[in-house]
C-alpha cells in the first residue's frame, strides 16, 4: 500500500509560557488519512484537535513549538519555510473554518475571495478566468445563481450559504486534502445535514481526503470511515468507525457514546461524564482522563498509557482488556439504568 495522503507521527505542540512554564497542547499524536477517506477527529474543546490541524497547516503562532512529523503525500511539512508552506496552503490543503460568519472578509465580495484563492497559486491566470472559476466553484457547492452571488458581499449570504462559499474557497485549487474544523457547529441542524452532504459528495466525487474535526460523535458516525478520539492533547482511541462504535476500547469513548441521545431508546437518561476536561496547564499525571474515569486504578495515575492495538482498533488505556463490547442497540447507560 502506498503512503497515506496525510501521515502525522508523534506530533507535539508546546506553547512557550512564562519562564519555564511550557504548555503542552498536543502530545504524541499519530494520525493517517487515506486518499478519499473521511477521518473524524473527535474531542471536547481544548482537547487539541484544532491545534493539531493548525500545526499541519503551519498556521500556529511563532510561540508554538511543533515537533514530530507531518507528511503530505510523503513530503515532510514540519520545518518547511513559511514561503514553502504558503505554496501548500490553499493549493494542496484546503481549510474550512468553524464559523462562516467570521471566516470571510466583510469588505470583499465572495467571488473576489474565491478567485483570490485561485490567483494566489496560479500566477498566470487572468482575473477574468479566475472569476469564472470562482463562479463554477460556487455552482459546485450548490449555490443558486452563482453569477450573481459571486458579486455579493458575505453579509448578503445566509450562514449556510457562507459555509458553502468557504468550502468553495477551500476547494478552489482542487486540494488533495481538506481539513474541516467543526464546519457545522455554527449552523442550524437542517443546514448541518446539507453541509455534511456537500462535504461527503466532494469526498466521493473529487476523491479528496477529508479530516473532519468535530465534538459531535453523531456527525462522525454517519460519514466517517476512520475516527480518532482526542482527550487532553492525546489520541486516546483510533480505529474504524464501526469498530470504535461497536466496541469502544477507551472509557472516554464509552462516556461520549453514553451521552449521545438514541432514537430507539427515547426514554433512557443521557449519562454525562462526571467532571470537566482539565485545562492543559493543570493536566493530571499519568492518564489525563483518570480523575473522571470509573475504571481508574493506581497505575493510571502514574503511567501515561501508550496508544496500542487492541482488537480491531487502537486504544490508550491500561484497562482496555477489561472492557466489554457494547450491545447492538444498548449502551452502558441503559445497562446502568436496568
Amino acid at each position: 500500500m502506498s503512503a497515506p495522503l496525510l501521515q502525522i507521527r508523534d506530533l507535539a505542540v508546546t506553547f512557550a509560557g512564562q519562564g519555564r512554564n511550557h504548555l503542552q497542547a498536543v502530545c504524541g499524536v499519530d494520525l493517517d488519512v487515506e486518499k478519499g477517506q473521511l477521518h473524524g477527529v473527535v474531542g471536547e474543546s481544548g482537547s487539541g484537535k484544532s491545534v493539531t490541524m493548525m500545526a499541519v497547516m503551519g498556521l500556529l503562532s511563532p510561540s508554538a513549538c511543533v515537533t514530530g512529523s507531518v507528511r503530505l503525500d510523503g513530503e515532510e511539512l514540519i520545518g518547511k519555510s513559511e514561503r514553502a508552506m504558503r505554496r501548500i496552503r490553499g493549493a494542496r490543503i484546503g481549510y474550512i473554518f468553524q464559523d462562516p460568519m467570521t471566516a470571510l472578509n466583510p469588505l470583499l465580495t465572495v467571488g473576489e475571495q474565491i478567485s483570490e484563492a485561485i490567483r494566489l497559486h496560479e500566477r498566470k491566470i487572468t482575473r477574468r478566468s479566475a472569476n469564472e472559476r470562482a463562479v463554477d466553484l460556487l455552482r459546485l457547492v450548490a449555490i443558486p445563481i452563482p453569477e450573481r452571488r459571486a458579486l455579493q458581499y458575505p453579509h448578503e449570504f445566509s450562514g449556510g450559504m457562507r459555509q458553502r462559499a468557504v468550502i468553495a474557497m477551500a476547494m478552489a485549487n482542487e486540494p488533495s486534502l481538506l481539513i474541516a474544523d467543526e464546519p457545522t457547529t455554527a449552523l442550524d441542524v437542517t443546514i448541518q445535514a446539507q453541509i455534511m452532504e456537500l462535504l461527503e459528495r466532494l469526498r466521493a466525487d473529487k476523491g479528496v481526503g477529508l479530516v473532519l474535526v468535530t465534538h459531535d460523535l453523531g456527525v462522525v458516525a454517519g460519514a466517517a470511515s476512520a475516527v480518532s478520539i482526542m482527550y487532553s492533547g492525546r489520541v486516546v482511541e483510533q480505529g474504524h468507525v464501526d469498530d470504535v462504535f461497536a466496541f469502544p476500547r477507551h472509557p472516554y469513548t464509552r462516556g461520549l457514546l453514553a451521552s449521545l441521545p438514541q432514537l430507539d431508546h427515547p426514554t433512557a437518561r443521557l449519562v454525562a461524564i462526571p467532571g470537566a476536561p482539565p485545562p492543559i496547564a493543570m493536566r493530571p499525571s499519568g492518564c489525563a482522563f483518570h480523575p473522571r474515569c470509573p475504571l481508574a486504578i493506581e497505575r493510571c495515575r502514574i503511567e501515561v498509557p501508550a496508544l496500542r492495538a487492541i482488537g480491531a482498533s487502537m486504544s490508550a488505556c491500561h484497562r482496555a482488556e477489561d472492557l466489554r463490547p457494547l450491545g447492538p442497540t444498548t449502551n452502558e447507560a441503559t445497562h446502568a439504568g436496568a
Binding site: 498556521l59 504558503r86 496552503r89 493549493a91 471566516a103 470571510l104 483570490e116
Partner: peptide
C-alpha cells in the same frame, strides 16, 4: 479576526494579509 487566518490558510503572504485584508 478569523478571516485573516482564513486568508493565510489560502496561502496569502504577509504583505497581502496586511494591506489587502
Amino acid at each position: 479576526q478569523e478571516y485573516i487566518l482564513a486568508a493565510r490558510a489560502k496561502g496569502a503572504g504577509q504583505l497581502r494579509i496586511l494591506f489587502h485584508h
